[in-house]
């Protein structure tokens, strides 16, 4: 029987940790905009311009 109690304690701790993560992200505004991120993730980050290696390295510094 005590096994169940230990397991429940752990499962509640884990679930509360996720609830905390949700509340934190909510407060930070992660759920305010639900339409842009799905488009943004499709862009290639800092795709080097063709044939201009020097510029590409500059971009990295930015």
């Amino acid at each position: 029987m005590s096994v169940i109690i230990v397991l429940i304690a752990f499962s509640m701790l884990l679930a509360l940790a996720f609830l905390g993560a949700f509340m934190l992200s909510m407060r930070n505004g992660q759920f305010d905009d639900t339409s842009t991120p799905q488009l943004r993730m499709l862009f290639d980050n800092n795709a080097p311009a063709k044939g201009k290696g020097s510029k590409a390295s500059e971009e990295k510094e930015l």
Binding site: D33, T36, L39, R40, E59, L62
Partner: peptide
């Protein structure tokens, strides 16, 4: 989506703009 891409790269046109973030829905 091109608009989002361009508007979030404004720092390349004017480095004084440090962060630009688009909310497409609004």
């Amino acid at each position: 989506s091109s608009c989002i891409w361009l508007l979030e790269q404004l720092y390349k046109i004017n480095p004084a703009i440090t962060v630009s973030q688009v909310d497409f829905g609004a």
